[in-house]
């Protein structure tokens, strides 16, 4: 029987934290790209693409992330692909993040006054030009605080990938607990590491909100 010091536990957890960070970054960046595509389909597209994105968002926001992970894990397997846990985790998290970001950003674009669209259209701008030069620069400012705030949900969401067998911080917590029989210490430390990852994001989201709002008031 091996003895584990608190430092041994913490070291193993921190090593696994790398994968939580990598998966969070991949999900957030991938989700951002897919989310932007959804946003363009939602606000610029025809009736079919608008309906599609509406149902997409409803589906991903109305079902548990855990179920989405299971469906990605077992559903991809139906195509005869041997799905590694990291791939299923990445795909499910990207699609899930995209749904939330598209919905957040839609609110930000809609916050830009209607007259801005009309003004830019009357200057003969096409849809892409309107977005590029008039709408997005204004929507972006509104979008930054809630986007940073949502990144906290992404980091916490990666914890669920432990259930389909991806070894990140939560899974490492379970493995280390099974080896040390010290669940109180191990899960306490796991919680503190998540807190150390998420709290700066939460705080900067709040700070950005205050800062960008203050700028808005001075106009």
């Amino acid at each position: 029987m091996m003895e584990f010091s608190t430092w041994d536990i913490l070291r193993n957890l921190l090593l696994a934290t790398r994968w939580t960070i990598v998966l969070s970054l991949v999900s957030f960046l991938g989700g951002g790209i897919v989310g932007a595509l959804l946003l363009f389909l939602r606000i610029g597209g025809n009736r079919i693409s608008t309906a599609f994105t509406r149902y997409y968002v409803e589906l991903f926001q109305g079902t548990p992330l855990l179920m989405q992970l299971f469906l990605a894990f077992f559903g991809l397997g139906l195509f005869g692909i041997n799905v590694p846990a990291w791939l299923a985790a990445g795909i499910a998290l990207v699609l899930w993040t995209a749904a939330f970001l598209a919905e957040i950003w839609r609110g930000c674009v809609e916050a830009v006054a209607r007259g801005q669209w009309e003004a830019s259209a009357s200057l003969g701008m096409g849809y892409v030009q309107q977005m590029r030069y008039v709408i997005l620069p204004q929507a972006l400012k509104v979008a930054i605080p809630p986007t940073v705030g949502f990144s906290v949900q992404v980091v916490k969401g990666t914890a669920l990938t432990s259930i389909i067998g991806f070894v990140e911080l939560s899974k490492a917590g379970t493995v280390v607990t099974n080896a040390t029989f010290q669940p109180f210490t191990v899960y306490g430390l796991v919680a503190l590491i998540y807190f150390a990852l998420c709290w700066p994001l939460s705080k900067s989201s709040q700070a950005l909100e205050r800062k960008l709002n203050a700028a808005h008031r001075n106009h």
Binding site: G157, A159, S162, I163, F184, V190, A191
Partner: peptide, 20 residues
């Protein structure tokens, strides 16, 4: 702040496995 910045899964594990 502690609850909002940690995953629900870990809170659950802490309560079920840690509190005993």
């Amino acid at each position: 702040e502690l609850i909002r910045n940690t995953p629900f899964l870990i809170q659950l594990f802490f309560i079920f496995f840690g509190l005993p």
